[in-house]
Simulated scan of single mutants.
Amino acid sequence: MLTLVADFQQNKPLVLNPKFVQGLKSILIDSSLDKEFIAKAITLPGEGEIMDMMKVADPDAVHAVSSFIRKQLASEMRAELLNIVENNRSSEAYEFNHPNMARRALKNIALAYLASLQDEESATLALNEYKSATNMTDQFAALEGIAQNPGKTREEVLADFYNKWQDNFLVVNKWFALQARADIPGNVENMRNLLNHPTFDLSNPNKVYALIGGFVGSPVNFHAKDGSGYKFLGEIVVQLEKVNPQVASQMVSAFSRWRRYDETRQSLAKAQLEMIVSANGLSENVFEIASKSLAV
């Protein structure tokens, strides 16, 4: 994957190794393998993991390559992935045991790959899986695929899911986190809207971890090159610090590795740290982490 990242940075065409594709395809069709193992074997590493392996982290290149690999695999293994989704559906009552957990995990990772294609057939499949789901796990997995594609359907399904599960605060937190880590362009504006959602409470640590913590875990939007993600977090830390300094100190730590990025991002992140440090009445915890991050 790092080789492809380097190719992207040098404006070279991205080409996926056919042996890699064939290797994953052979795993997909091997019925002798445990379904949980297959699900884990075909799961790509997170973008944060890849950036940790780089001397200078490049969120744009890593995201572009990760998206390319996911879509290319989905395209070349489409038939196999569709078979997995179709053969691992179940209308039976939810059961918490290994065979059923493994079946759901495999079906849902296959569905996620197909959803990445962002074509009409895959969008229809994800929507049908959402509507026919007999449990929250499968319904949420379908929602994850739908939520990566901006548009009317996304908004309608997100609203429908919330209406179904609004009385379950744990599920609502998952709903917040899902939207926070979405890779859709300009997600900062959606984040600002979610801050005003009736069930979001800045004084509730779990809500903050779900929404704000979810956002900083999304490289494509938190590390947006225009600095909008950094600015959003800086503003939130200053607000949060007045309500819960301990949680604010954990959120500001997202800036602690700012020197690992390119000069443009370094400058933008540093500006937010300086803004936080200069805020009036700053708590000791937040000041310590922000000032140490600047000094490193």
Rank of each mutant, 00 (worst) to 15 (best):
Y113H: 10
Q272L: 07
L44P: 00
L282T: 12
R89T: 14
A248G: 02
G23S: 11
P99V: 12
G234V: 08
F200Y: 03
K107N: 10
A112R: 12
V15T: 14
R260M: 05
K71R: 11
L2K: 10
G229P: 01
L194T: 00
L273W: 02
S278F: 02
N173V: 06
Q179L: 03
A290R: 04
S75V: 02
L82N: 15
E263D: 07
E155W: 00
I42V: 15
A102W: 01
P185D: 10
G145I: 03
L211Q: 08
E49K: 15
P150D: 15
L178F: 12
K35H: 10
H63L: 06
E95K: 10
I184K: 07
S90E: 07
V85G: 04
V238Y: 03
A93E: 08
G151D: 10
V188C: 02
I212E: 07
K225L: 13
A74D: 01
M77G: 00
A269R: 02
N285A: 14
D262I: 10
Y162P: 00
I42N: 10
K25N: 08
A79V: 13
E92K: 10
E156I: 13
R89C: 05
R104Q: 13
R103M: 12
K292C: 09
N244H: 03
W258I: 12
D7M: 12
L33P: 00
S66F: 05
E156Q: 15
D119F: 05
A141L: 12
D58L: 01
A6R: 09
V238T: 13
K131W: 00
L233C: 05
M275W: 07
Y113W: 13
N87Y: 03
N285M: 10
M101Q: 09
Q118I: 09
F215L: 10
E274T: 04
P245A: 06
L158C: 12
E120W: 01
F215Q: 08
G186C: 01
K19T: 14
E144A: 01
V277K: 11
A112N: 14
R154N: 13
P245I: 05
K225I: 13
Y130I: 07
E36I: 03
F215G: 07
N163V: 00
V252R: 02
L282E: 11
Q250R: 15
A269D: 06
S91Q: 13
R89P: 00
L16E: 00
L282I: 15
E263Y: 02
T137A: 15
N173C: 11
V62I: 15
A290T: 05
E274Q: 11
E80A: 08
L14G: 07
R103L: 09
